[in-house]
């Protein structure tokens, strides 16, 4: 007997259907039915935001080395399921060669970002020269709860670029997957669920950006909204809500093809500390 898979969302480490009971049909380029996908609602986003907020602190509190291991682990588990990811892409019109290339690039990206976990803080911190008797230094700290709208044309690389830089830096994320490549996103969620990523650190919703973007933008407990390839008019309409809730808004027109430190650092806040020191002699530092 052959059974069909139900594509569900990923919230707080569990796989619920949307509370709204709605779905949309995914079709291939020929217009043939491929799968039913949950059409996430405002309440699904609310639940995901609560789960992410609850998970963020302990995730940021893990050692950098441990976060690195966990992100590398995602790559390990994903590699095991290569055939599944390739098959889902070919169903949507990818050639086998193109699907393989996308998959390999995704693995490379995970390994790249895993390496950054215990390095971005050193690279981005500074000891600042000041004219008073203070030891003055600046370090990055996670922004907190981040919502991301992934690029519509990015099945794997686009999705990973949307959330991995955020979790490298100790944030928790709620990511809205591409409408078209929702199957890949749900399969990636199944990888996350089995690769030591604590429940709630990454939450993946499926649905329509036009419907969920305003909710993400106005939610008072979301600290940043990152968008990839979102329409200009839609961005304009949500920018004001982002400002009302003092939310960082980052706009990327395209999918960044390579991993970069900038994507990690745009979801960090720089904290500068003025630490008083006593200078009692001319023979050097007192700290």
């Amino acid at each position: 007997m052959e059974v069909m898979k139900t594509y569900k969302m990923f919230i707080g480490g569990a796989f619920p259907r949307t509370e709204s009971g709605r779905y949309y049909e995914l079709t291939n380029p020929k217009g043939e039915f491929v799968a039913n996908i949950c059409r996430g609602s405002r309440k699904d986003f609310r639940n995901a935001a609560v789960a992410a907020r609850a998970a963020q602190k302990s995730w940021a509190g893990k050692s950098a080395y441990n976060r690195s291991q966990i992100i590398y682990r995602i790559a390990e588990i994903m590699q095991q399921r290569k055939s599944q990811f390739v098959e889902e892409l070919t169903k949507l019109g990818y050639t086998a060669a193109k699907a393989n290339k996308e998959f390999d690039a995704a693995i490379d990206l995970l390994v790249y970002y895993a390496g950054w976990c215990d390095k971005y803080v050193q690279v981005s911190s500074a000891v600042n020269p000041v004219a008073s008797s203070h030891f003055n230094f600046s370090i990055p700290e996670p922004t907190g709860l981040v919502s991301v709208i992934a690029h519509q044309d990015g099945p794997l690389v686009g999705l990973l670029q949307a959330f991995v830089p955020a979790i490298v830096g100790g944030n928790a994320v709620v990511v809205l997957a591409s409408e078209k490549y929702a199957m890949s996103a749900v399969s990636l969620a199944e990888v996350l669920a089995t690769s030591d990523v604590p429940g709630g650190v990454v939450n993946i919703l499926t649905g329509f950006a036009s419907e969920l973007a305003p909710i993400m933008a106005s939610h008072m407990d979301v600290n940043a909204l990152v968008t990839f390839g979102l329409d200009r008019p839609l961005i304009t309409s949500i920018a004001e809500a982002c400002a009302d809730s003092v939310k960082r808004l980052r706009i990327h027109p395209d999918i960044p093809t390579k991993g970069s430190l900038d994507l990690i650092m745009e979801l960090q806040e720089i904290k500068t500390t003025w630490h008083p020191i006593e200078k009692i002699s001319s023979s050097g530092s007192a700290y």
């Binding site: 609310r46 935001a49 909710i215 106005s218 939610h219 008072m220 407990d221 809730s245």
Partner: peptide
């Protein structure tokens, strides 16, 4: 009409 944060 907007979801709130405990921070406030």
């Amino acid at each position: 009409g907007v979801y709130q944060s405990g921070n406030y």
